[in-house]
């Protein structure tokens, strides 16, 4: 087993775990964590692809490495925005559930 394959399989595992968490966990904070786990899987996959595509004498292909660094920055911003929204929601509404309240307007 090459290390690129090992990393690739680990990436699949992380993506699966994250996807399950995003679907099954009702709490927004857990969804944000699951998003980060899934994102971690995608970045690890980019790392494995960089390793597999390495030229002679290089540790890895630089393009996927550049992609994954940009991807981490984007995921970090997304996490910050999501956490800010959760905090604000908690301050304003007193809870952080995602479920919609029943429509308030009557017929």
């Amino acid at each position: 087993m090459t290390d690129a394959l090992l990393y690739g399989l680990a990436a699949c595992g992380l993506i699966g775990l994250g996807l399950y968490g995003l679907i099954a966990n009702p709490a927004p904070l857990r969804k944000i964590l699951a998003f980060n786990i899934m994102g971690g899987g995608v970045f690890l996959l980019a790392g494995a692809i960089a390793r597999r595509g390495a030229g002679a004498g290089f540790g890895g292909d630089p393009v996927p490495q550049a992609l994954l660094i940009t991807g981490i920055v984007v995921a970090f911003s997304a996490t910050a925005l999501a956490v800010a929204l959760v905090l604000r929601l908690n301050a304003v509404a007193g809870d952080t559930t995602l479920a919609e309240p029943p429509p308030a307007n009557d017929d």
Partner: peptide
Amino acid sequence: LRAALRYLLFALLGSLLYLLGAVLVYG
């Protein structure tokens, strides 16, 4: 705020699927 959070989280799920596709294409 709740609507915005739902929008953001569902959109992030979508964008990860897109990014996964992009990484696989490069591979």
